[in-house]
Simulated assay, not measured.
Amino acid sequence: MTPETLSELAFNSTKLPTPPVELQPRADRLLVNLGTRVAFKGDLDRVWTTASLDYKGVQLAATTVATPVALKVDAGTADADPQSCTYDLVKGKDGYTADSEDSGCNVTYLRSSGSGTYPFKASITWKVTWTDSADPDGPPQQPGLPDGLSTFEQDVTVKEAQAVNRASGTGSD
């Protein structure tokens, strides 16, 4: 058994949290041509998992560390602007977050979903490294590990708002 093998075991045991996103307005209240804000609710932190072996006095350990780096949003239809976009996640005082408040990355659906729905999806890309110890802050080792991905999917209903225009006649011709 090698630290590289333990790092693969730790990697395969790592559970990545789903993206903490919320649509505003809610997924069942979206309207054509009304901007939909993809609100990032809460902060994410690094996730790590340690695999270790203690056999006849030989101790080995490896820790995988997953750091959230990007949030990708996919509207689920070509009839949206933008169809997809990506937010960089930045480290704040309470973890990694995305500033979705003033982003040009919010989705505007251009067509009703009719009697169906669109498959909205948000995904977090995680940069994964590993150390050859039980310390997640130890020096990263090579070879590297593939990126991780966690996904949130939600069906969204987009309706058209109907407006009634009434011509007001003044009666004077």
Rank of each mutant, 00 (worst) to 15 (best):
M1S: 11
M1D: 13
M1N: 12
P3K: 06
T5Q: 14
E8L: 15
L9G: 06
F11P: 07
F11V: 07
N12H: 08
N12Y: 05
S13M: 10
S13Q: 11
S13A: 13
T14C: 14
T14D: 01
T14N: 03
P19S: 06
P20W: 02
P25A: 06
P25V: 00
A27I: 11
R29M: 15
R29D: 14
L30S: 08
L30K: 10
L30P: 05
L31T: 01
V32G: 05
L34E: 09
G35A: 10
R37F: 02
R37H: 10
V38S: 03
V38H: 05
V38R: 06
A39G: 02
F40R: 02
K41N: 04
K41D: 01
K41R: 09
G42E: 02
G42T: 03
D43E: 12
D43F: 04
R46F: 00
W48K: 00
T49I: 11
Y55I: 13
A61I: 04
A61D: 01
A62R: 06
A62F: 06
V65D: 07
V65M: 09
T67G: 07
P68V: 14
A70G: 09
A70S: 15
L71V: 14
V73N: 04
A75N: 12
A80P: 08
D81E: 15
D81T: 10
Q83D: 13
Q83G: 10
S84M: 11
T86Q: 15
T86M: 11
T86P: 09
Y87M: 12
L89V: 05
L89N: 12
L89C: 03
L89Q: 04
V90Q: 07
V90D: 09
K91A: 10
K91C: 01
K91H: 08
K93H: 08
D94E: 04
D94P: 00
G95M: 01
Y96L: 10
A98Q: 07
A98F: 00
D99F: 09
E101I: 04
S103P: 03
C105I: 09
C105T: 03
C105D: 01
N106P: 12
N106R: 13
N106K: 10
V107L: 14
V107K: 10
T108P: 14
T108E: 13
T108L: 14
L110M: 15
S112P: 05
S112D: 08
S112I: 06
S113R: 02
S115K: 06
S115G: 02
T117H: 05
T117K: 05
P119M: 02
F120E: 02
K121G: 01
A122M: 06
I124G: 02
T125I: 03
W126G: 04
W126D: 08
K127P: 00
K127M: 01
T129C: 07
W130K: 02
W130T: 01
S133P: 10
A134M: 00
A134W: 04
A134K: 05
A134S: 10
D137A: 13
G138V: 11
G138A: 15
P139K: 11
P140N: 02
Q141I: 02
L145S: 00
L149D: 12
E153P: 05
E153Y: 05
Q154S: 12
D155Y: 03
V156L: 07
T157S: 14
T157L: 13
T157W: 08
V158S: 09
E160N: 15
N165Q: 14
N165T: 13
G169A: 07
G171Q: 04
S172Y: 09
